[in-house]
């Protein structure tokens, strides 16, 4: 018995996708392009919050804070990723990024940028991850 064989989607895999085109009013053939993340905040600010951006509160919730903002601030008295905030507050990720952006603007939270894949991988980082996993 032989396993089924994979057919490559394209003859030669493209190294990197082209820069994203505007999603609005798309008439593109790619069905994926018909979908975008729902909700407000289609701007650069939201894109700056990654799933694993670590958020830390800088202050107690002020009286002016909305209930959602106050709840988020209480959660991140210790650093917490945006993904964890989304899970604990039971809010979609885009809603969390809007909240975080508001709190960043009000200087009530600090954001610690994620480590993202580099064109040339960071060897010392990967070595640290290896050693950490070996200790598990």
């Amino acid at each position: 018995m032989t396993p089924p064989r994979r057919q490559r989607r394209t003859p030669a895999p493209a190294p990197e996708p082209p820069p994203p085109e505007p999603a609005e009013g798309g008439r593109e053939k790619n069905p994926e392009r018909l979908y975008v993340v729902a909700g407000p905040g289609e701007d650069g600010a939201r894109a700056a919050v990654d799933l694993v951006t670590l958020i830390v509160a800088r202050a107690e919730p002020p009286p002016s804070a909305s209930p959602e903002q106050a709840a988020l601030l209480r959660l991140c008295s210790a650093p917490l990723s945006a993904a964890e905030l989304s899970a604990y507050l039971n809010l979609p990720f885009s809603a969390i990024t809007v909240l975080i952006t508001e709190l960043l603007t009000a200087e009530l939270v600090q954001a610690r940028a994620p480590i993202v894949r580099q064109a040339v991988p960071d060897r010392s980082l990967l070595e640290a991850v290896m050693h950490g996993l070996q200790r598990l």
């Binding site: 999603a23 798309g26 018909l34 993340v37 729902a38 909700g39 799933l51 964890e84 899970a87 979609p92």
Partner: peptide, 13 residues
Amino acid sequence: LTTEETMTQAGIG
């Protein structure tokens, strides 16, 4: 834990 996102249909078709 679980996080979720809603994708809405943006274009026509």
